[in-house]
Simulated scan of single mutants.
Amino acid sequence: MSVLIAIPARYASTRYPGKPLVPLTGASGQSQTLIERSWRAAKAVSGVDKVVVATDDDRIREAAEAFGAEVVMTSESCANGTERCAEAHAALGGDFDIVVNLQGDAPLTPHWFVEDLVTGLRNAPEAGVATPVLRCDGTALSGLLNDRKEGRVGGTTAVFAQDNSAMYFSKEVIPFTSKTYDDADGTPVFHHVGVYAYRPEALAAYPTWETGPLETLEGLEQLRFMENGRKVLCVEVAAKGRQFWELNNPEDVPKIQAMMAEMNLD
């Protein structure tokens, strides 16, 4: 099955304008922009036929082409990354069997997260879309709870049924737990990793649906699938000693750089 990875990137982020071009310094002191680090994460995934950056902004296009990325220009009207991936896939001919949306704010995404995600979707013909979830340890859960305490909209959490079909995604920390966890303890909270794999028919249908109340309230694009009765498959992935965090706010830059230093990632 042919696989496309599209990296949607826009300049006019509400929470962090210009975020794709923010420099991140690795363990050796080398600085690369967020979009370049996301592209390099995508290029490390095995079994992929093409990787493109999908954007509507010439500044991002110029930066991406400078480090060797293929760019697909999309319209400014795309409401989110899924709509941008749908437009990019159509512009490329719409012939890929699986389209992966590796959002341009997740430079710490290990290659096996995406590989396991694609395998999970391949093995679930009843699902039109799949997304990874990572069980939080005590440290990760504390980070999520602290973001909410400080009034920041940070990572997303997921709850899912026994067949791994998503029940809900939220920017609140769900499910509620009153228990205290040590740093390395496993918790009942799953961090949603901002990557999606779509079958082409589900991806093409997505922009034709109206934005629903849950998507509007949470600001989470995957809820549109659920509000239209489509199954979203949650694929549990393993950290294997890697820390994971997304760049949602300016405060996340030093956190991600500290993680890269600790993991010796350049």
Rank of each mutant, 00 (worst) to 15 (best):
A197W: 10
M1N: 14
A161C: 02
A41L: 08
E210L: 13
A166L: 14
P213I: 04
T33Y: 00
M73G: 12
R242G: 08
P107F: 01
A54F: 09
Y168T: 10
A64K: 05
G128A: 07
M260W: 08
P250F: 01
R224H: 10
Y196R: 05
S75K: 12
K19C: 01
E215D: 13
G18W: 00
P110H: 04
T211N: 10
C85K: 09
H191S: 12
E83F: 10
A91N: 09
I60H: 03
P125N: 05
R152E: 06
F244R: 01
E83V: 13
F96I: 03
D185H: 09
E150I: 06
T55V: 09
I256P: 03
G186N: 15
R15M: 14
G138L: 03
G143R: 13
D183R: 14
A63T: 07
K231Q: 12
V159K: 11
A9K: 02
V118H: 08
D105C: 04
R224Q: 09
A239E: 05
G154C: 05
T33C: 03
V237Y: 01
P17R: 00
A63I: 01
T180F: 14
A161D: 14
E70K: 12
M259G: 00
L4M: 05
V22I: 10
G212S: 12
T25R: 15
G194V: 12
R40W: 03
D49N: 13
R224S: 06
L220Q: 08
V51F: 00
T33F: 01
Q222F: 12
Q103C: 14
R242E: 14
L214M: 13
R135M: 07
L134K: 01
G219Q: 05
V118T: 07
D95W: 13
V232G: 09
A202R: 07
T216F: 13
A91D: 11
G26V: 01
N248G: 15
D183A: 15
H111N: 14
R10M: 15
M263V: 05
G47S: 06
W245C: 15
A90C: 08
T187G: 05
S75P: 12
V3D: 07
P254E: 01
P107L: 00
P125K: 10
